[in-house]
Simulated scan of single mutants.
Amino acid sequence: MSYPVALSLAGRRALVVGGTRGLGDAVVRRLDDAGARVIAVGRTEPGTTVAARVVIADSTQPEAADVIAAAVEEQGGIDILVHVAGGSSSPGGGHASLSDADWDVELSLNLLSAVRVDRALTPSMLRQGRGAIVHVGSIQARMPLHDGTLGYAAAKAALRAYSKGLANELAPQGIRVNTVSPGGIDSPSARALAQRIATARGISEEAGMQTLMDSLGGIPDGRFAPPSEIADVIGFLVSDAAGSVVGADIVVDGGTIKTI
């Protein structure tokens, strides 16, 4: 696809954490399509990918940041960093069902992994005096689901606050930081969440999905967003067309959040 100059990423170097599957893979494809050379980071090898390089690393582990930084140094730095890695594996059943270990897992994956990777990679961006960072959050930062993903919601709310502070810190030095907060994504992980809710309540998977939809209060446009639509928003945010967008949280939820 041919992109207008302001949306083109020709010659840019990008890294996508969580870029080997799902939304992360869609982001890799979108950035590549716009002309960027993309490194995809993931815990597992992708089935197929358009990434120029794949780095196998678990971003929840502190040592992963050094592995990722080494890959970035080998290609001479990056211009774009997108942190997609996230999710929830905690049991349903409300706050009392979450152990300390569950909380550690949720915070490590959905907050601290981004913090560590940013800390490892921003020095390179600062030396070149430019860059764009996008953290993928969630509308649950605003409307947490207490039954299935309370720890996840709390971690994403913390990620949103961290991102805003980081944006204010880095903007004077030429680095833009923004957050994209999807609502329901048409993905295997959404179906897995519905299954966990179903297991906790002793109901069918179909009923679990309906519970998930109901818990969101309904989606005005009537569907979960395909990953490609969210990737398009991220592609815009890291382009020159979004040059004055700093510290924003862009919600992509089909109208699920109904308050101002």
Rank of each mutant, 00 (worst) to 15 (best):
M1K: 14
Y3E: 14
A6L: 12
A10G: 05
V16Y: 02
V17Y: 02
G18W: 01
R21L: 05
D25V: 02
D25N: 10
A26I: 01
V27N: 02
G42C: 08
T44E: 07
G47N: 07
V54P: 00
V55K: 09
I56N: 02
D58Y: 00
Q61W: 00
E63I: 00
A64P: 00
V72N: 03
G76T: 05
G76F: 00
D79W: 00
A85C: 09
G86F: 01
L98P: 04
D100C: 08
L109P: 04
V115M: 10
V117K: 00
D118Q: 08
D118K: 02
T122N: 09
R127Q: 15
Q128C: 13
I133D: 10
H135C: 15
H135K: 14
A141Q: 04
R142C: 03
L150K: 10
A155K: 03
L159E: 13
L159K: 07
A161D: 11
P172S: 12
G174P: 06
S181T: 05
G184S: 06
S187F: 03
A190H: 02
R191A: 15
A192N: 09
A192C: 06
R196M: 08
A200L: 08
A200S: 14
R201L: 14
G208S: 11
G208H: 12
L212V: 12
L216F: 08
G217L: 06
I219H: 15
P220T: 13
D221A: 08
R223D: 12
F224N: 04
F224Y: 08
A225G: 09
P227I: 08
S228I: 01
A231F: 01
D232C: 01
G243I: 01
D249Q: 04
V252T: 09
V252E: 06
T259Y: 14
